[in-house]
Structures are given as structure tokens and as C-alpha cells.
Amino acid sequence: MDALITVLMAMVGGAIRVSTPFLFVSLGECLTEKSGRINLGLEGTLVLGAMVGYMASFETGNPWAGVIAAGLAGFVMGALHGGLCSLQRVNDVAVGIALMTFGTGLAFFFGKPYIQPSAPRLPSIPLADWTGIPHLADALRINPLFFLGIALALLMAWAFRTTRIGLIVRTTGDSAAAARAMGVSVIGVRVLATAVGGIFAGIGGCFLSLYYPGSWNEALSSGQGLMAVALVIFARWDPVRCFLAALLFGAAGALGPALQSVGVTQGYYFFNAAPYILTLLIMIASAKGRLAMRSMPGELTISR
């Protein structure tokens, strides 16, 4: 019984911690896909953001400088993707795969000297220390980026629904011809949406190196950037549902470490593979659903 509570608490805390990078990357991907392009390269952006954020935090001594630097790195990667895809005949899926390699390569190349030293990490907000229950206090020490992510999700949902910018992005994603008729530069909107999406993914990456697990190494990301793409489909391109889906993925990701903390090591690798299996099952369940089809942006290449 005690062990069960420990596992549950560890999973709640883990879900909150593990979900943050999922949340940021999926919001970035959501924005990009809403504009009609798919960026599979966010995995590379995530890894680069993790490395750049760690480097900047180490060099300046301020973890928030790391967050800003990671966002900038993400912006550059996103702009690169957006720019390349604006050339005629260049396929966005393939460019994403290439940027996965390129971003990872850059991060590993420049990240070598930062594997050993320890950089200042982001602080956490203790929400439940007053209860005096150690497990609960542990679970509810929450990083400010988590709340920033929630705010961002709500802001995006509101902007898509009610603002002029949101309408422009949605129209560009649903029908390039309609957007052109509105006098909107389709390429401009898409490049900007991909670049801003890159900022989010970069920030998601620096959460990995600056908070949880909280150090930089080459095995830091394990496909979170890619899973986020599947997550967006599952969330039907709705920022608020992205947040809920990220929590679910976070809980799945926390399963392995949570079981390990109470001494269950049998099948460790399978519990660690839980997020991938979950993603695959979710894709199978949601890909051909009528709801998903209805909410998918019309210009997306995966819909053709």
C-alpha cells in the first residue's frame, strides 16, 4: 500500500516534471502545423536548445539566460526549416529529418566540453512543503516553466479563436489560396510560425538540461521532440488538449523511474519504452478518427 502511494506520488510529480518539455515542443509543433507545415526537426531543436541553454547558464551563471539562449537557438533552427521549405520543390518532412541530424550534430559537437561541469539550474516553486508530507512536497515542487507552458497553451487557444493573427495562421494552414485572397503572405506566415514554434521547442529542450534531469549529456533526449509531433495529432491541433496530452505522456514517461524508486527493476527497459508504445497506440487510435480528420489543417502534407 505504502509502495503504491509512493509510486502514485512519484508519477504525479514525474508527470508534471516530464510533461513540461512535451508541452513546449507540442505547442511549437501545434503552431507550425496550424500554419500548414510539419516540422519533424523539433527533435534536433530540442537537443540543441538543451545544450545551448546549459552552456549559457554555465557561462553567465544565470539559468534564465540559458532559457533565453535556448529560445534563440530554437528560433534559428525554426527559421532555417521555414526558409528551406519555402524553396520550390523542397519537402518539409525531409527537411525535418535533415534538421534532426543537423541539430543533434551541432549540439554534440559544441556540447562536448559541457558534459562535465555543472551549470546553475532553474529554481522550483515549493507548493506543498507546508504539508510536511515528504512525498507530496517532492511531487509538488514545480518549475516555473510548467506554469509558463500552461499560460502559453491558454494564450494560444485564445489567440487562435479570437484574434486576427490567429485567424491568419489558421487560414494559411487550411487553404493557402484563401490566405492569398486575404492579402496574406503565405510563405511569410509559415516561416514566422515555424520560427516561433522553434523558440518553444528550444525552451522545452533547456528544461531537460536545466531542471529535469538537470544536466547536459548526449543521451538527454530520447525522442521527446518526435513524440510531440504525434501528440499534436492526438490533441487534434488544440493547444489546451496539447497540455492534457503532455500530462498523459509525462505520466507514462514517469512510470519507469517511479517503479524503479520502489525497487521494481524487472522489465525496466519496457517501462522506459512505455511512452513510445503509448504514442504508437495513440496514433493508431486517433489517426483515422473522424474527429482528427475534421480538425486537421487542410494544407498539411501528412493529410494528403
Binding site: 532555417l80 519537402n91 543537423f102 559537437f109
Partner: peptide
């Protein structure tokens, strides 16, 4: 140079290659 040099070179080739797709025709 770090061992990721080859990976980075591959990444550069991949990106440039895809950009070159636009030249066909």
C-alpha cells in the same frame, strides 16, 4: 575535434542536399 564531427558533417550535407532539390528543372 569531438566525435560528433562526422555527425555534424552529415547534417550539413543533408541540409544542403535538400535545399538543392529546388534546382531540378
Amino acid at each position: 575535434l569531438p566525435d560528433a564531427t562526422v555527425l555534424l558533417l552529415q547534417g550539413v550535407i543533408f541540409v544542403v542536399l535538400l535545399a538543392s532539390e529546388t534546382l531540378y528543372g
